[in-house]
Design a binder for these strands. Structure first.
Lengths: 144, 144
DNA sequence: TTTTAATTGCGAGTTTTTATCATTATAAAG
DNA sequence: CTTTATAATGATAAAAACTCGCAATTAAAA
């Protein structure tokens, strides 16, 4: 079973496998959307795993440093969000009205990075793209 | 002269033309890069225009609401940044090392939005794209 | 086991941003 | 050019989102 396959993942990053840590990784991995530190904290509580909020912050930061998670800032929310660092990266479509976040699988700018690298002499490490708009539900609700 | 041509701009948005407000708009307009509230606050001080920090926050927020400015979150800095809302939108290339921010004029995903609109039935309002990497200077400095 | 070093909890401290409310300034009306 | 209504500002406090220091705990190496 892949129950606790975070053990190896943590180990490879030189991190100890603690209950909180693997629980947080699991929460990230199971979540379809980026989550805030507070959401992780509450989710842990749900699972009867007590953890201090500052530990959650620290852990998320550590996971991001070790590239096991990604830290992002989605516009409209001042808080940092975190997502599991999947091999295939994702972009999100965010509804400006209801704040719903929907993953987009296709990345429209992968090719563009090379062009940009040549043009600017930067070594491109990655990019961040989010698209904003109004979801079908909210389009109907608004119609003013 | 276009010295105080922010007057009309503010007026059209139903905002009073105050000294602080037009000074802030001018700072945004003249800046090649997005700026934080604090930077605006300090820049005002430089110009001998006293303004309270909370006024700066409030003003930036108002300008963003009225679409005279755009509010953004560039990764790596937890603070909100603001830029003048130019007709042609811009993307930025950010150096992960020295935090330098360079505008990119070309937008590689304009076309993609239409496709996405059809596919998701969202009404797309805009997008946010930043590219991250290492600038030529920092590439040399690092070489470890 | 025992030891060593990483991790956590807790409390306090920062930083960034927002709210309240009395005062002041803008611009509309007279 | 005043007066007046309303919008904007300053000052202060407070909320929200993190971050830090240090003692206690725990994981894993010896």
């Amino acid at each position: 079973m892949k129950q606790d396959n975070f053990d190896e993942l943590l180990r490879r990053s030189g991190l100890k496998n603690t209950k909180t840590r693997s629980a947080i990784l699991e929460i990230l991995e199971k979540s379809e959307q980026p989550v805030t530190a507070e959401q992780v904290f509450l989710e842990l509580k749900n699972k009867q795993i007590s953890a201090n909020l500052s530990t959650v912050y620290r852990t998320l930061e550590t996971l991001a440093e070790k590239m096991l998670a990604k830290k992002l800032n989605i516009s409209g929310d001042s808080r940092a969000m975190f997502e599991y660092n999947r091999l295939v990266h994702r972009h999100y479509l965010v509804c400006l009205e209801c704040k719903k976040i929907i993953p987009i699988d296709f990345c429209p700018i992968k090719n563009y990075e090379k062009t940009l690298e040549e043009k600017t002499k930067f070594k491109i490490a990655g990019h961040k793209l989010d698209v904003y708009g109004y979801c079908p539900d909210c389009q109907n609700k608004i119609q003013e």
